[in-house]
C-alpha cells in the first residue's frame, strides 16, 4: 500500500467514505496507526474499551474464552466493504470490551481513541450521528449474521 498520512487514508476507507473534510480532520486528531502481528491481541475481554479500530489490512478474530479454550465467534476483514472495523464498546457504558480481539494475519489499522471520539461526537452532534449510523450499520450486519447462523442451516435440513 502507498504510504499515506492518516488524513489522506481516512476518506478511502468504506466505513468513513462520505464524511466531509472537516469531520475527517476532527477524527484524525483522535487517530494513530497501529500494527499487530498474527496472534497479537487488539484487546481483551473485561479491559476498558478505549479504542475503535478501522482495519487497513488483515483479519481480526472476535473470540470468547470458554473453560476449554477460546471460541472464535466472528471475523472482521479489512477487505469487506463496510465491515472492516472492530469494537463498539467505546460507545456504550460501562466502556468495557465484551470479547477478545486477536489478529489472525498481519493486521494494520487506524486506532481511534475512544474518549477523544466520544468528546468529538458530544461537541458535534452531526458528526456524532454520522458516525453512529455507520456503527449501527456494522452492528446490524453482524446481528443478522449471528441470527442466521443460529438457524444452523447447513447442519439441519439441507
Amino acid at each position: 500500500m502507498v504510504r499515506m498520512t492518516i488524513e489522506q487514508y481516512l476518506p478511502h476507507h468504506p466505513f468513513l467514505a462520505g464524511l466531509d473534510e472537516d469531520a475527517l480532520a476532527l477524527l484524525a486528531r483522535c487517530a494513530t496507526l497501529v500494527h499487530f502481528a498474527p496472534g497479537e491481541y487488539l484487546f481483551r475481554e473485561g479491559e476498558p474499551a478505549d479504542a475503535f479500530y478501522v482495519l487497513r489490512t488483515g483479519r481480526v478474530a472476535l473470540e470468547t474464552r470458554l473453560g476449554t479454550g477460546s471460541q472464535v465467534l466472528d471475523t472482521a476483514d479489512a477487505d469487506d466493504p463496510g465491515d472492516g472495523v472492530v469494537g463498539w464498546s467505546w460507545l456504550v457504558p460501562p466502556y468495557r470490551w465484551t470479547f477478545d480481539a486477536r489478529a489472525v494475519s498481519e493486521t494494520s489499522a487506524v486506532s481511534f481513541d475512544g474518549v477523544c471520539l466520544r468528546a468529538r461526537c458530544e461537541e458535534d452532534p452531526v458528526l456524532g450521528y454520522a458516525l453512529m449510523r455507520r456503527v449501527v450499520g456494522v452492528m446490524s450486519t453482524r446481528l443478522h449474521s449471528a441470527r442466521v447462523r443460529l438457524l444452523d442451516l447447513y447442519g439441519g435440513r439441507p
Partner: peptide, 20 residues
C-alpha cells in the same frame, strides 16, 4: 459458521462475501 482450532479463514455468512 463456526471456527475450529487452527482455522485462520473467515467466519460469518456466505452472503456477506457477495459484497466484495
Amino acid at each position: 459458521d463456526r471456527g475450529e482450532a487452527g482455522w485462520t479463514g473467515r467466519i460469518g455468512l456466505v452472503t456477506q462475501l457477495i459484497g466484495k
